[in-house]
Amino acid sequence: MSHHIVETQDLHYTYPDGTMGLCGVSFRITHGESVALVGANGAGKSTLLLHLNGFLTATQGGLRIGDYPLTAKNVKAVRRSVGMVFQDPDDQLFMPTVFDDVAFGPLNLGLPEEEVERRVMSALEIVGVPHLKKRAPYKLSGGEKRSVAIASVLSMAPDILVMDEPTSNLDPRSRSRLIQLLKSFEHTKIIATHDLDMALDVCQRTIVLHQGLITADGPTLALFQDEQLLARSGLEKPLRMQGCPVCGEWKERDHGGYRKGAEAGEA
């Protein structure tokens, strides 16, 4: 296995209409790390993620995935190792049935049919929805769609998981199930979000993005306690770190999952 490094150097990107997407972003993420990319709407999170699979090409600066710089030549190999989960599962689930959809990637890799089937079923089992395999994607609930979208990426056996706002549009139950799922993955993870509670649970490290620039990069819990930094970046403290509206005190809620997450964040 390669080292799954993701490294950017002074990445600039300007959209064709002149909008500045990124204005010099540099970071380095190594094997097994779980990194939250937080920032307000329009901060440039999605723009940055689209560089990681070579869909956008930086107008200035460079990008390394694994051991090599990302070029037009190796973009296919890079896309195989970087599994991208899109913000809107409807964009990702384009095939007639769940099975076809999860099989799309493996079939494109040219794997034999039995292997494809095995991978599809194991991916669906990991996310806990093997019973949906014959359903049509447009008949699924939001949470189910998200699970299937993740399965469709897992079936390609990527080294790095990149997710754009995975908790958006989920109800609380689906959201906490998703958080548990994400915590169970060993992959290197890069998760763009403005759900700071989720970031606190899943990611040890956080990169704060504001108007196309990195304003902070460090341990999640530490950054989230810095109210000034958050305010400067157009963010607010995670809900559970805010004062209790009833008793006015700062109390950590005692929900098993959350608590463990918070500890992980501190670790």
């Binding site: 869909f55 899109f86 799309f104 990637g105 079939l107 494109n108 990426v153």
Partner: peptide, 18 residues
């Protein structure tokens, strides 16, 4: 975006199906 999602999963113009 759909095209992008397809490319991310190895799409090269052909849509395979079992």
């Amino acid at each position: 975006r759909i095209h992008l999602a397809m490319c991310c999963r190895g799409f090269d113009g052909r849509v395979p199906m079992i």
